[in-house]
């Protein structure tokens, strides 16, 4: 998953308004230039590595390139085909299923850890915080390889343990369980990351609220439920949105596990894997671009729906 967006977006501060007449125009131009100079490195990279490739992919998606016959303008044909493509649809639905189960479990665990750390009742809080966060620092490729070993039906420690106590060999990599096994890896990787977002938000809640609650006779659980959780609502929403995006873009983990369990994870298992296969196996760059754009659209729609639902709920309460 690629949940690497920095958690806190800096709030934009409007520049002080200075009446033009009181300053020579040169000075304000110079200031503006300086400002542009500061943002230029970002803008250049942003344009070169995101905007231009995105436009190029969009352009490509409007063509059809065949092994025989070359390139022809296809308009929206690729998009029409993708909407009708059972492999793409299956991948998206599979990720939707993943989302509905994995994201709540992961975020609930993150929230629990964050609240526990914030309560100040744990010993060695720094050590625990670090311990929970460390999996996020491990590259997902290595995490997937490691879990692939742990899941192994022959050498895997879980399988050996299960056999020793007479439970038979668990099929972590079987077609039936593979989605759950993937969910477990992703949860392990990102629980700490989300915990840090929530923990940071909890730290900025004003202590006066807790004092007031204590005066009113609220216990720790009541404070958590009625004050802390509502107070970090924006942080929770951020975690949900990142998780939605990351889930639909799932690639590394299933791609690596497919080497261990090709019968359980096919080449179109997730939408991103499908896009990859389309380019490198099927040589359909144009169609792959269209699939990627549609995937982007799915993510935008779902993220927006989540945000909308959350706002509506906030308004009601």
């Amino acid at each position: 998953m690629s949940q690497t967006v920095p958690p806190a977006a800096a709030r934009r501060v409007p520049p002080p308004v200075v009446p033009k007449s009181r300053r020579p125009w040169r000075s304000s131009t110079r200031e503006a230039l300086t400002a542009y100079g500061f943002v230029a490195p970002f803008m250049v990279l942003f344009a070169a590595l995101l905007v231009v490739p995105l436009c190029y992919a969009g352009y490509l998606s409007l063509f059809r390139s065949q092994l025989v016959g070359g390139d022809v303008f296809a308009g929206l044909d690729n998009y029409r085909r993708a909407l009708d493509d059972p492999l793409f649809r299956e991948g998206v639905l599979r990720m939707a299923r993943f989302l509905v189960v994995q994201v709540p479990v992961m975020l609930a665990a993150s929230l629990l850890f964050a609240l526990a750390l914030d309560s100040g009742r744990l010993r060695f809080p720094r050590l625990i915080r670090l311990g929970i966060f460390v999996p996020y620092a491990i590259p997902s490729v290595i995490a997937a390889l490691m879990w692939g070993y742990l899941y192994g039906p022959d050498f895997g420690p879980f399988a050996q343990l299960a056999r020793d106590v007479g439970l038979g060999t668990p099929g972590f990599l079987s077609p039936h369980w593979i989605l759950a096994s993937l969910a477990n890896i992703v949860t392990w990787e990102f629980v700490g990351y989300n915990m840090i977002i929530m923990f940071a938000a909890l730290q900025s809640v004003s202590p006066t609220l807790y004092e007031a609650a204590a005066v009113d006779g609220a216990g720790a659980f009541r404070v958590a439920w009625h004050i802390k959780i509502p107070a970090i609502r924006p942080a929770l929403l951020l975690s949900v949105i990142f998780s939605v995006i990351g889930t639909f873009q799932l690639f590394n983990e299933p791609k690596l596990l497919s080497a261990l369990a090709p019968q359980a994870i096919n080449t179109s298992y997730t939408p991103n894997m499908y896009a990859y296969t389309l380019v490198f196996t099927n040589q359909e760059v144009n169609y792959s671009s269209a699939v990627s754009f549609l995937l982007g659209a799915v993510i935008v729609v779902v993220s927006y729906a989540v945000q909308l639902a959350s706002q509506r709920k906030a308004r009601r309460s």
Binding site: P262, Q263, N266, T267, S268
Partner: peptide, 18 residues
């Protein structure tokens, strides 16, 4: 189009085997 042929084997005959 042999790349595709072998890749699709996994999704059809291979899947039926599993």
């Amino acid at each position: 189009v042999q790349d595709y042929v072998f890749s699709d084997f996994n999704d059809t005959v291979g899947k039926a085997m599993t």
